[in-house]
Design a protein around this nucleic acid. Sequence first.
DNA 1: CTGAAAGCGCTTACAG
DNA 2: CTGAAAGCGCTTACAG
Lengths: 332, 332
Amino acid sequence: MGSSPTMNDVAREAGVALRTVSRYVNGATNIDSELAERIRVAINSLGYRRNLAAASIRPGWDSKVLGLIIGDLSNPYYTALTRAIEHEASERGYLLITASSEEDGTRHDKLVDRLAEQRVDGLIIVPPHRPARGWADVAGTLPPIVFLDRPVSGVQADSVLSDDIGGAREAVQALITSGSRSVAFVGDSLSIYTLEQRMLGYENALHDTGHMVRAELVCTDAHTEAQAREAVARLMADTDTDAIFGANNRATIGALWAFRDAGQRLPLIGFDDFDLAQLMQPEVSVVSQDVEQMGTLAASLLIDRLNGTGSAQRDYVLPTTLHLRGSEQRVN
Amino acid sequence: MGSSPTMNDVAREAGVALRTVSRYVNGATNIDSELAERIRVAINSLGYRRNLAAASIRPGWDSKVLGLIIGDLSNPYYTALTRAIEHEASERGYLLITASSEEDGTRHDKLVDRLAEQRVDGLIIVPPHRPARGWADVAGTLPPIVFLDRPVSGVQADSVLSDDIGGAREAVQALITSGSRSVAFVGDSLSIYTLEQRMLGYENALHDTGHMVRAELVCTDAHTEAQAREAVARLMADTDTDAIFGANNRATIGALWAFRDAGQRLPLIGFDDFDLAQLMQPEVSVVSQDVEQMGTLAASLLIDRLNGTGSAQRDYVLPTTLHLRGSEQRVN
DNA sequence: CTGAAAGCGCTTACAG
DNA sequence: CTGAAAGCGCTTACAG
């Protein structure tokens, strides 16, 4: 390292008072031009850089750093969210610390603590589905929070969500409209808020169209792509499943694998778009979330609140969009 | 906000000296157990959290925050890199600030400045291919750096690279071995280090097998997937191209699109693996970089250096792996 | 417009 | 083992 030059060093070098350097560095306009020049030269020759970390400990100054806790960067859904958040934050002068909880409650809590201790100005959080401790215990000690993807009750915070119920219902209805009668639900644990909601949408669609929810067509333990692949294989072999609703990305991709394994496909609609969906044969139909808007909105709500221009706290539920591309159709 | 409680508040509440609280918080073992208990109670009742930002301005203390500047989080290659870096950093107690330069030199320089002013302990940087200013101008004012994906000359820093030349050569040789004679190069600008290297590998492979480099088979202005798609379409229409080397992800996907548009495919090998490569028909052959190891190594080198356990500065060039999955074969 | 001084929340020799 | 004091790099009333 070799300790870097301080504002004090610059003041000495330029032969002015510390305060004058501070004003110069902070962009004050009314500075004697000769002094300003001496300061400029001193800064350059010393290679001085202001220390924002030090500046931010002063009362009323904030760090202009936001924290983001997501599940896992390997999930393209979270990646897209992160990108939008980072973009909006950067646009508005904030840096972003990104951390992955890996859906582990304890790890998540540690990250929250660390970020709070780091004195980030605000937090955007995708809460883990099995929290290790209650939010109420720590809420008072945390900076402003916006929850993303999943809401948290009992905490003062905005939430930005998608219409999981509506999206799932629409997808399942589309499958039924295309002629399927035994639509299977393939997804992860219902203890995950979004999956629970999508299950509700699935049930709604069945009820609306006069169908029963049949337990043997419901798989809620496909945590990975590989498990979804197996689950779909089993559904195809053991039941009269005639269409698949992939309740998340991994489920959908798993189904595509199972189709390839079986050498035959079933009508399919997935929740969440993915990169090459349109390059598949047939193109994969999906319900897509407006991920970019979700991220932008979350960052923007948080920053508005930090600036005191936020409105009353509420949940924002963004609509989803059904993209019918072909894979929903029956095979004959 | 409402200013949060400080160590001073805790000391007063517990009826001990500030220093004792500091020692408690920093995990000193030898503290009178009765005092420790009083401090514990005071911390809980006040909802005190240590202020790491304040602590880190003291001499010899560092922030335990690293900065990462990449091109763009929408590129899965950078995402994978980021994930590995974040994982290693987290594993070793560091937080990670991630920022996107969007390949813009000026924006990149601003991020470097901001991160330096934020006093991150170290920086991992994918340098933009057209830097707006020279590294020499600022090198002295920056924390330790590890360059990733592309090297930078004239700066004291480690670099973590892939064997772009070797990987490209191997890919092109494989296409030739499969019977292709007019292998086209489709990629982005050669002012990007990795693309320049891959072009070298392409040329090497041609020379090694007694072929000439033919200008009409070389496309180096496919900056986007869409442009690559058009470029491949043109190659198929206007030249005798009988195989495509996709010099990056976007080029490869663009080629797949062009194949679908044309209703026929050419032998293809791409540089960089992608998520659904094996779900395509035929499965897409690629040269893959060991992205996870690159990220882990970069973070690990940086942290070792911060801890004073780093070795002499050098470039690390990681080998690539050719995955032949079928798409390299000729169509008949 | 500029200087000398106080203070942000914290850690660390220095005495006891 | 613990207390009162100095100081990290910075900003900001307070005087001039």
